[in-house]
Amino acid sequence: MSTAAPSAQPASSQAASGKGLAAYCRGVTKHYGSGSNQVLALRGIDLEIPAGKLTMLVGPSGCGKTTLISVIAGILDRDAGECSVFGRDFSAMGQRERTRYRGENIGFVFQQFNLLPTLNAAENVAVPLMILGEGRAAAVAKGKEYLAQVGLGDRWKSLPSQLSGGQQQRVAIARALVHSPRLIVCDEPTSALDHETGGRVMALLKDVALKNDRALVIVTHDARIFSYADQIAKMDDGRVDQVITGSGITAEARGH
């Protein structure tokens, strides 16, 4: 891992400055398959994800971005190395505790939104609260509040099929925030959207998701949204080649 831009501020120094780390990975490896079919997806990842910042994982398809966020979010087990989210290691937890911890502390925004097609917008937003045991009425009421925050207060009754792609992604963002997680993980949140809608979604994400020192990790290869990042981790072939911060980000966005 290296820091490219002179203005780049290493995450560890952010931690030292009191901002704190949301998560970190050291020497993380992960493989799929076995024998001659074995593929090494992560080859010793070192990465720090600062709280209150937007970190982007960028790189070509198959470079290990999705595997890395799956490991960070505790939905895939690593083979080796260290990985901690808010001081807790998923590998040290049992299945039930891990699921609970993930439900309480991590919010997800998926590339294909993954909204439940038979629930209306408010009910979709309320799902993480219901998973955590909150009653339906209270959860849906809170869901409506968060829909209002993403500008869809008047569309709470709409089914996903009645919403545009951008609106569905806003519902997904509200769903990722509703239970006040400390880390939001987004997988290609703009790839299914046009440039203008993608820009609006990113602005919204940055505006609402980074409140309260929340950390935001976005996997993307959409260079149009690089400028929204506070830190960009460039990945290739299972490694983080470069971490770019500060003015280096502007240069990276222009370069694409």
């Binding site: 979010a73 939905i75 299945q95 039930r96 699921t99 609970r100 993930r102 439900g103 309480e104 997800f108 998926f110 294909q112 993954n114 439940l116 097609p117 799902v127 993480p128 998973i131 955590l132």
Partner: peptide, 13 residues
């Protein structure tokens, strides 16, 4: 995929 999303969001088996 919906079940997968619920699982990722913290729904236990």
């Amino acid at each position: 995929k919906q079940f997968g999303a619920l699982k990722a969001m913290g729904a236990s088996n």
